[in-house]
Write a protein that binds this DNA or RNA. Structure first.
Length: 431
RNA sequence: UCCGGAAUAGCUCAGCGGUAGAGCGGGUGGCUGUUAACCACUAGGUCGGGGGUUCGAAUCCCUCUUCCGGAGCCA
């Protein structure tokens, strides 16, 4: 008998089918046994009724514990008490393993305990939902880019130098070549790719040895960097907006069960699928000051500023044209105002903060060299990067999306540690 | 790194100077419609480590360790 997945049960009403999975919960009522069964594709209630089955099988089923693995033969039917819900009428059960006493109980647990049991916690329904939404977000990003002429071009993870000098790097020994570092962004390598392929993206883990300790930071997270030749600042933002709205629609369409489990406010998410706002950094600071923020024109937005800025806005907000001093060396100066760069941060609503950083890149060799010298960067190590400005340089732009930040917003999850299978944080590397 | 908070049963917590408690989970029994099911009984603890104050410390003080929340930095 072929295996049927829980998600397909509705196509087999009245037929005997076989399902393979685990016990999420079990309730017994004498001759009736209610097994909350899960198989990875979804959950369904399986009902075992003693008079309808072999007595020995029923006794075996009675001894099932939380998370025991089992194969059941059953007939799907409409739930006797709930509308639009299916349940299974159990005919036979084969216990694959009686699970030992399961550490994660039905009541509340603290974060330390749950994180120490992350390898088991991922089975819980909210974690299951988060990981499925992450999957949907990941492939929606790839789908959008693939449909828009971007070619996957993976940047190396082991690198000889820093991408953006300021941030802390994880360092390791690289044979006889001295130190190597775990990449914190593939962006500079992507810029080489556009000269061959036009539009490229990478998607993989990046590493930041920052001692950040907030609900929005991980030391290892997944980032998608995209880069496009002949795209300038305004079009760069338009691509980002189209991409994010594509992702929102994909999640709303494909993750209805998951969003319901997480009690995500769907209407708020739907409302974000509308034209995004754009604001210069100057105007954003003026606005924030009028709202009581202490922010100054030369500085970055704090966490509270991001919340304040998007308060009352159903859509994300681009903050663009930043003071040159607080942005990276490779960003192109605004021809209309050399004090600011053509960079943009996209701030998600509902307090989820920055989800994208992007910019038009400096494409003039001498200007780029000057800036690298000003930042005292080791020029000889970046010769390959400067070369791009010598052999057919073109205007180009790109941006980077933090997968977990975006997933966190889509799923409405408070802490970023719940939207990656095994979060790496400053004080935690187990399991 | 800085500023707060916490550590008591497997888990979540109450107890805050006078010999250790609850709920859940575990075990045993009961129940034909349960939805973190319910009911009865039951086992389970050097109160994070070390030091101090006291007739007496889970409770007060010092110290160490671990964790949580927030800030900065960023995606």
């Amino acid at each position: 008998m072929p295996q049927v997945f829980v998600k397909d049960v509705k196509n087999h009403l009245g037929q005997e089918i076989e399902l393979k999975g685990w016990v999420r919960n079990i309730r017994s009522s004498g001759k009736l046994l209610f097994i909350q069964f899960r198989d990875g594709t979804g959950d369904i209630q399986a009902v075992a009724f003693k008079p309808d089955m072999d007595e020995e099988i029923f006794e075996q089923a009675k001894r099932l514990t939380l998370e025991s693995s089992l194969i059941i033969k059953a007939v799907p039917k409409l739930h006797e008490k709930l509308a639009d819900t299916f349940e299974l009428s159990v005919k036979d059960i084969k216990v694959v393993q009686y699970a030992e006493e399961y550490p994660i109980g039905k009541k509340e647990h603290g974060p330390d305990f749950l994180l120490s049991n992350r390898h088991l916690w991922i089975r819980s329904s909210k974690q299951w939902a988060n990981l499925r939404i992450r999957h949907t977000v990941y492939y929606a990003i790839c789908d959008f880019l693939n449909q828009n002429c971007f070619v996957r071009f993976d940047s190396p993870i082991l690198t000889p130098n820093a991408c953006e000098g300021t941030t802390t790097l994880f360092e390791l020994d690289y044979f006889d070549e001295g130190k190597a570092y775990l990449s914190q962004s593939g962006q500079l390598y992507l810029e080489t790719g556009i000269m061959s392929l036009g539009r490229v993206y990478d998607f993989g883990p990046v590493f930041r040895a920052e001692r950040s300790k907030t609900r929005k930071h991980l030391t290892e997270f997944w980032m998608m960097d995209a880069e496009a030749a002949y795209v300038e600042h305004d079009e760069n933002m338009q691509i980002q907006e189209d991409l994010i709205r594509f992702v929102i629609r994909a999640v709303l369409e494909k993750c209805q069960t998951e969003l319901a489990i997480l009690e995500r406010d769907i209407e708020t998410l739907k409302a974000a699928d509308a034209p995004f706002k754009r604001m210069t950094h100057y105007d954003a600071v003026e606005y924030l000051q009028s709202k009581g923020s202490e922010i100054t024109h030369g500085s970055d937005l704090g966490a509270q500023d991001e919340v304040l800025l998007t308060e009352g806005s159903p859509v994300p907000i681009f903050v663009e044209r930043w003071p040159k001093a607080i942005k990276a060396f490779y960003m192109k100066r605004d021809p209309d105002n050399p004090e600011v760069v053509l960079g943009s941060d996209l701030i998600a609503p509902e307090g989820f903060g920055e989800i994208i950083g992007g910019s038009q890149r400096e494409d003039d060799h001498d200007l780029l060299l000057q800036r690298m010298q000003a930042e005292k960067m080791p020029i000889e190590q970046y010769q390959w990067f400067l070369d791009l400005r010598k052999y057919g340089s073109v205007p180009h732009s790109g941006f980077g999306i933090g997968l977990e930040r975006l997933t966190q917003w889509m799923s409405g999850t408070h802490h970023i540690r719940e939207v990656i299978p095994f979060p790496r944080m400053i004080y935690r590397i187990y399991p």
